[in-house]
Write a protein that binds this DNA or RNA. Structure first.
Lengths: 356, 356
DNA sequence: ATTCTCCATGTTAACGCTACCATGGCCGTC
DNA sequence: GACGGCCATGGTAGCGTTAACATGGAGAAT
């Protein structure tokens, strides 16, 4: 039989086919009476195909319900229109705002976002980066500037444009867009000092693998020392990012240091917890205790009293990061860039007014 | 020179190569002294490779920093380990919880989530589904049971396992996991009626493209009629999903129907807004007005008074949906399934106690 | 000792698309 | 009227991996 097969010239091999039976570009081509490459052009660069051809191809596509296999297309063109985005958590509108900024910019340019969530684990971050590079993303947007050495090396060697967001870092992988968490926390603490508070507590999300949290604590501490405020171990707490943990952290602070005059919580959800805890304990805000948050979420302005907080340009960070990646992909920009988007202290009623 | 090259036998063709210069499986194979397929096996099915070979290959992989090209791998195997997940919004912990449930289950089985966000637009949903199918995902998890006809057809024709979540639908595309929004809203309204409230307002997120919101309204309305409660146009409002809009909707309801006795808001964020608005107006909760929410977010229990709400099994919905997709992929399950995960009324202090 | 199995590994041909180069027809130029 | 250039379209090879089948050697079975 093997001999017979060898003798027959145009006989297809008996080998088993692996395909799924899905509609292929060749099916469309046959129906439209053109070649496969013309179908490809109709779908990807319609302007270089003659009107009549385009209509015929489009009709065939519609009739067969053809959906191009992007795996094959991306492999053949050795490029994708996908940007990998790695964020610490889905449980916070902070990142949702930034992601929205990215998808708005990228979507309009035909690019897509591939999202990875790390839960503040650097191991997870590395895994996501490996996975993203394996899928040959055209760019990567990370949160923060703290990464495993392996992550940095993989990204640098890949040659893919990278943006680190929400921070200002000294030795970036490639590009950076964000604001100084240290400066923001310093500015808020200074504001509280000017309002007349002297014993100012600070609560942040766990700092171990989170350079934004570390920077915020550093900013608070610098202000505490610079303005000669009360420095005591009990005035610093870590709490995971839920309203309840914010409440609990503030409660514990009150237990250890009942004379605390103000708390600055490095996230509005934590601050919300503190507001509720104050209410439960019958503490008047801002008279008995001042409370300040971070991020200016929607809820901050609705609190009674409204919450003093730090406004951060989340959407703009996302859209800017996306734009920078696109520019780099197109070769319109080279060299590293570090964009400081700034922040803003939003004075509301949960802290006393500074003397005029 | 061209002639010389033609004469040399093993010279590669003069055609331009398209590759990126990245490390290839063949590079690893050469360094390890094995064939490409052995590298592939070492990475994908290590147990069928001899120990010594595996070590040699692994060393070569590490030394070269080889990252397999998933585009090529998935194309060659005509399968991916990616599940497409489509959710309406990133601005709500509801979906974050479900997505976490999915990634927990899928991640441990070597599968990955590809997330698409629709912003409650059915056009966007269709676009995402097309994109997901183009990437040949192994399964799709949707939110809700309301889709464009094209979406349903594409998914049915694709033969890919599909789960619709957060609803109970009559004519599902494939499988369903969720709870009855109608029953949940009915149950909460009944609860409010038993607490003695007669004029019960209802606020939901915009219903136009959201069958969950529609079902909640239907449940409220059924209870209103069944229990002979006051039915008035002003007692129904739509508000986009922010704390501020919840506050505003409640404010407007009070303006048009000052004698409203309780409001049921179909999301805890909306309910938070109402709680704040009540406080601002000096209304005592639950005496002057009862307030109930939906979803039992973390914040609900922290409010003063704590918020009565409907607890929904968000994480379990996500993990169950993921498990169902995996079973179907593995051929362990066939036929459609419709799993009702139920819900729970959580009575707290923002509504009066029902008579014992 | 011989045959049969099994195991580890190799060879080859897909997977489904697009980049690259080629071709043929039409138009304008000299 | 021959030639050059441009435009629309096509043929072919390649993108980088893995499925399918092939092979060769060690050990088991007879």
């Amino acid at each position: 039989m093997a001999v017979a097969r060898t003798l027959m010239k145009r006989e297809p091999p008996a080998r088993k086919r692996r395909g799924h039976g899905a509609v292929l570009i060749s099916d469309v081509a046959r129906l439209a009476g053109v070649s496969a490459i013309t179908v490809s052009r109709t779908l990807n660069k319609p302007q270089i195909v003659a009107d009549s051809t385009r209509r015929a191809v489009q009709a065939a596509v519609d009739r067969l319900g053809y959906i191009p296999n992007r795996l094959a297309g991306n492999l053949a063109s050795t490029q994708t229109r996908t940007i990998g985005v790695v964020i610490p958590s889905l449980f916070s509108n902070i990142f949702a705002d930034s992601v929205r900024g990215m998808t708005d910019v990228l979507g309009s340019e035909g690019y897509q976002v591939l999202l990875g969530v790390t839960d503040d684990s650097l191991d997870m971050e590395t895994k996501h980066v490996v996975s993203l590079l394996g899928q040959r993303v055209a760019g990567v947007i990370l949160t923060g500037g703290m990464h495993q050495r392996r992550t940095r090396e993989l990204l640098k060697n890949s040659g893919v444009p990278v943006v680190e967001t929400n921070v200002m870092v000294r030795s970036s992988i490639d590009m950076v867009v964000g604001y100084s968490n240290e400066a923001a926390a310093y500015a808020m603490t200074r504001h509280l000092a000017r309002c007349g508070y002297r014993r100012i507590g600070f609560v942040t999300t766990p700092m171990e693998r989170n350079d934004r949290a570390q920077a915020r604590r550093a900013g608070w501490l610098r202000a505490v020392r610079e303005f000669g405020l009360v420095e005591r171990a009990g005035l610093f707490r870590e709490a995971t990012l839920t309203v309840s943990h914010g409440a609990r952290a503030f409660g514990e602070m009150l237990a250890s240091d009942p004379d605390v005059e103000a708390v600055f919580l490095a996230h509005d959800m934590l601050a919300s917890g503190a507001m509720f805890e104050a209410r439960r304990r019958g503490l008047r805000v801002p008279d008995d205790v001042g409370i300040a948050g971070f991020d200016d979420l929607d809820i901050a302005q609705e609190f009674v009293p409204a919450l003093t907080t730090v406004r951060t340009p989340r959407y703009a960070i996302g859209s800017t990061a996306a734009r920078m990646v696109l520019q780099r992909i197109r070769g319109e920009a080279t060299g590293s860039a570090c964009v400081d988007m700034g922040f803003e202290i939003v004075q509301r009623d949960s802290t006393r007014r500074p003397p005029a």
